[in-house]
């Protein structure tokens, strides 16, 4: 099976015009195969979000190589869908327009557009009432569902999630987790999920990649051998709790190596 993402000796500076400044990532290697659901965790500032942004095409690199399906990543693309932590819907567009934005921009026919809208609405449990509303009036949970809907409507080859569930209420969080687990189970679409929530990271993934403190490298990989129909699993499961413990210890160990870092100007 080919690697859907392959990063070799990635290097990125915070401020490219000043080489004496900090390295965000240094010598980072990462491999992800087709059909995998991988979570990426690590202490704050380790570069996990930076890496995701590099894969998405938002950032350039100063060393090493980043390949998506064998080709170098140059710019953002509908094939690499991103779901943001701060959601970022377009406030001047209605919910319907937000969901169909990507699809319209790529010139998909009206019939197909309608179909996509219907599918994603069903999937994210949105009903017609919300379609004509503007994002500012909606609850955060509702907005993130739309954030997910607009990416799924674009049928991406990989879904990149940048700490998308952070400020959400439990019910929405649970729902979106379940949605992605089921989606992955059916379509085996590759999903890369960056989070700092350790129980969540273990719960959704097959593989958890733990990064070292800044500048980030891979510290270790935890294989999550829990049942595939993960959404049916109770969280007071012994094996699950064991894995959470192992992963937590790894992250805590890494944190104790990095001193209490003051806030870094960057991301």
């Amino acid at each position: 099976m080919t690697n859907v993402i392959e990063a070799t000796k990635l290097k990125k500076l915070f401020r490219p015009d000043d080489p004496s400044r900090l390295l965000a990532i240094d010598g980072f290697d990462f491999e992800m195969k087709e059909g995998e659901f991988v979570t990426l965790i690590g202490p704050t500032g380790c570069g996990k979000t930076t890496f995701l942004r590099i894969v998405a095409g938002f950032e350039d690199i100063q060393g090493g190589q980043i390949l998506f399906k064998g080709k170098p990543v140059e710019a953002p693309d509908a094939k690499r869908g991103v779901i943001f932590q701060d959601i970022r819907l377009f406030p001047w567009m209605t919910v319907r327009d937000n969901i169909l934005f990507g699809v319209k921009s790529r010139g998909i026919k009206a019939e197909e557009q309608k179909q996509k809208l219907k599918e994603t609405m069903e999937l994210m449990q949105l009903d017609n009432e919300a379609l004509n509303m503007y994002p500012d009036r909606l609850s955060t949970g509702m907005r993130q569902r739309i954030g997910v809907a607009r990416v799924l409507a674009n049928s991406p080859d990989i879904i990149l999630l940048d700490e998308p569930l952070n400020s959400l209420d439990w019910v929405t969080r649970d729902y979106i987790q379940t949605t992605f687990l089921k989606l992955w189970h059916e379509t085996k679409k590759p999903i890369l999920f960056v989070t700092h929530n350790i129980p969540e990271a273990v719960f959704v993934a097959q593989k958890v990649v733990v990064m070292t403190a800044r500048p980030g490298k891979t510290k270790s990989v935890v294989n999550v051998d829990l049942p595939e129909r993960r959404w049916e699993l109770r969280r007071d499961n012994d094996h699950y709790l064991d894995l959470v413990k192992t992963t937590s210890r790894l992250v805590e160990d890494e944190l104790s190596k990095a001193r209490e870092v003051e806030k870094v100007v960057g991301y």
Binding site: A130, M133, L138, S139, G141, M142, V171, T172, R235, L241
Partner: peptide, 27 residues
């Protein structure tokens, strides 16, 4: 397990409460 037992319990209660009415759309 004793800790997560409560977590699971709480999860069930909240999910049940939420299903009682439609999720509010507006903030």
């Amino acid at each position: 397990k004793e800790y997560y037992h409560y977590v699971e319990q709480l999860r069930e209660i909240i999910t049940e409460q939420a299903s009682k009415s439609k999720e509010p759309v507006e903030k």
